[in-house]
Nucleic acid binder design. Structure first.
Length: 555
RNA sequence: GCCCCCUUAGCUCAGUAGGAUAGAGCACAGGAUUCCUAAUCCUGGUGUCAGAGGUUCGAAUCCUCUAGGGGGCACCA
């Protein structure tokens, strides 16, 4: 008979969960989730579970007693060095070196299988993010949304979701008209003509640039024209140029989209009308005071909302309804909208839409990304898009670099306010954690260069059983915990967990590096250590690629 | 006025699905490099988890209230 372990994929700590689940099953109950944690204190083992305390209530038994039973089951697997019951009923598990080493082997042999657990099972998810108005350059807040949305998409993709990244272009309505009129005003100004600047117009210098460009294109042609005559051409021109700018900036920032959905197109293709017709048919809309209203209150919102104003014009909400209706029609299992926190008041409204469209609440998740306070040397930089005073993503990128900018954004929970100090971010020092992680990667690369120079060739995971140092086991444990962290990050949609994990991993590596030499005269030990280095490198690479940060070979 | 988010070490922030004695980085001080990159490492100590109640065997974490900071409340976009 084969030992039980063979059937249980003894390759990483997440599988400890399976063993515990089995043990719990043997007690005659099932738990939906077996909680695992990495204990703070070493004496509490390598991994620990409080599951027996939770079971105490259900089984009406002493938690320590339950823990003892689970312990016996776990000991039966022969995988662990020790299993202890401690405190009120914690089960503390210590891995055997064989367990650790076989985990490392697993990671080296099939890194993808080890690092990318199929949680999504091919479920189709759409992540809509940035979606900035095409009326000006991206600012830093958009940058945060971009970094977050991109990292979240990458994360979900690696968890087996079929992800589509979409940018929604608000190219219909008043803002775009304002853009056109602002350009028009600057054009007139350029020509030495009197023309009132629109009250809420865009005052940024880029508008003057656009006016100049327009002048080169049309020359004097528009001098005599009224705005209404040239409006649509100007809109098209302005939106096109702004969109180009936004795309270029995002590309430079390393953020790509699969799809760009135009709002205007929703109208032109009749989707808004079709959607509203359907809702009318289903009685979700009604007329009052000459306007068309959506029964939002029936679906959990505070008040009903207008979709067509009494003057016959659509509100933005109309196209937003149609947009989400369209998303649903496209067959996504899940929709994620990443919005700036200033739009949070909009959440109940759009949630109401999802319900009105007869979809379960979980279908749509709105993730709010908090605003960014820009500082320079500790002093706030005032920003107002309307007044044309704002620091663009481009400026920050040029000044501090895309990697650093992204990393800083992803070192915080999305829902916490963020102070972004340009001067601090600019320093190429230990104040920038991104270098710390990247440096670990570059260092490993340099070790491999050294190994090649020495003519060391080997096949990973050769000789890993020779690893004996405490720092090596710490590193391996950290590596093996990657899937645990990954699962949590996916479940909670929190890419920042990756960022923190990478810093911890880098710390362990740097520490190891300074106390032990990888490439030495001991050929076999060297290959063992190189294998470990390769594993660290692989995981750093994987993590950084989720964050959209480069992993440099040299620094 | 109503609604949402935030408040953890001097600063910036983590804290994993309620678990054990609350954690990093920075800053500050001292030390480490004949050797694979010193953007590194090692050693130093900090807390009324904003406050008050409550739920629980157990709360930074969940509930209620209060205070402070930010944001939102349109037939605006």
């Amino acid at each position: 008979m084969l030992p039980k372990a063979v059937f249980c994929y003894p390759n990483n700590p997440v599988d400890v969960r399976e063993h515990i689940r089995e043990a719990v099953k043997a007690l005659g109950v099932e738990v939906p989730f077996v909680e695992l944690e990495v204990p703070k204190l070493q004496k509490h083992g390598d991994i620990s579970t409080p599951v027996s305390m939770a079971l105490a209530r259900i089984l009406k038994k002493n938690p320590r007693q339950i823990a003892e039973q689970i312990k016996q089951h776990l000991e039966g697997t022969g995988l662990f060095e020790s299993v202890e019951v401690a405190g009120p009923g914690f089960i503390n598990i210590r891995f055997s070196t064989e367990y650790l080493v076989s985990g490392l082997r697993e990671l080296l042999r099939t890194p993808e299988r080890f690092l990318r657990k199929d949680i999504g099972k091919g479920r189709k998810v759409q992540v809509e993010f940035v979606s900035a108005n095409p009326t000006g350059p991206l600012h830093l807040g958009h940058g945060r949304g971009a970094a977050f949305g991109a990292a979240l998409s990458n994360l979900l993709e690696r968890a087996g979701y079929d992800v589509e990244r979409e940018f929604y272009i608000n190219d219909a309505g008043r803002q775009v008209t304002l853009l056109a009129e602002s350009i028009f005003a600057r054009y007139k100004e350029l020509k030495g003509l009197e023309y009132p600047f629109p009250e809420d117009g865009y005052r940024g210098d880029y508008i003057v640039e656009l006016a100049r460009e327009l002048n080169e294109k049309v020359g004097d042609k528009y001098i005599e024209q009224s705005f209404s005559k040239v409006q649509s051409e100007l809109k098209e021109f302005g939106v096109k140029r702004m969109l180009e700018l936004i795309k270029t900036d995002l590309e430079a920032f390393g953020v790509v989209f699969d799809r760009w959905q135009s709002e205007q197109a929703l109208y032109e293709e009749g989707l808004v009308k079709r959607c509203l017709d359907e809702l009318t048919r289903k009685g979700k809309l009604y007329e009052k005071d000459g306007a068309l209203w959506f029964r939002a209150t029936e679906f959990g919102d505070d008040k009903d909302r207008v979709v067509i104003k009494s003057d016959g014009a659509y509100t933005y909400f109309a196209s937003d309804i149609a947009y989400h209706w369209y998303k649903i029609q496209r067959g996504f299992d899940e929709l994620i909208d990443v919005w700036g926190a200033d739009h949070h008041g909009y959440v109940p409204r759009i949630k109401a839409v999802i319900r009105a469209l007869e979809q379960p609440d979980e279908k749509l998740t709105v993730m709010l990304v908090q605003m960014v306070n820009l500082l320079r040397d500790g002093k706030p930089v005032q920003m107002s898009k309307r007044a044309g005073e704002f620091v663009t993503l481009r400026e920050v990128m040029d000044e501090v670099g895309a990697d650093t900018t992204k990393f800083i954004f992803l070192t915080r929970r999305p829902d916490s306010h963020l102070d972004f100090d340009i001067e601090v971010a600019k320093r190429e020092s230990s104040e920038n954690p991104v270098y710390y992680v990247q440096y670990a990667h570059a260092r490993i690369n340099s070790i491999f260069k050294k190994a090649t120079e020495r003519g060391l060739s080997f096949k990973e995971p050769e000789n890993v059983e020779l690893l004996k140092e405490e720092e090596e086991f710490s590193l391996i444990k950290k590596l093996l915990f990657y899937p645990l962290m990954f699962e949590g990050a996916v479940r909670e949609r929190e890419p920042h967990r990756i960022t923190f994990y990478l810093q911890e991993l880098a710390r362990l590596f740097h520490s190891y590096y300074s106390s032990h030499r990888v490439v030495s005269d001991d050929r076999e030990l060297s290959t063992a250590r190189l294998s470990l280095c390769r594993a660290v490198m692989t995981v750093i690479n994987e993590g950084l690629s989720i964050l959209g940060v480069t992993a440099p070979e040299r620094m």
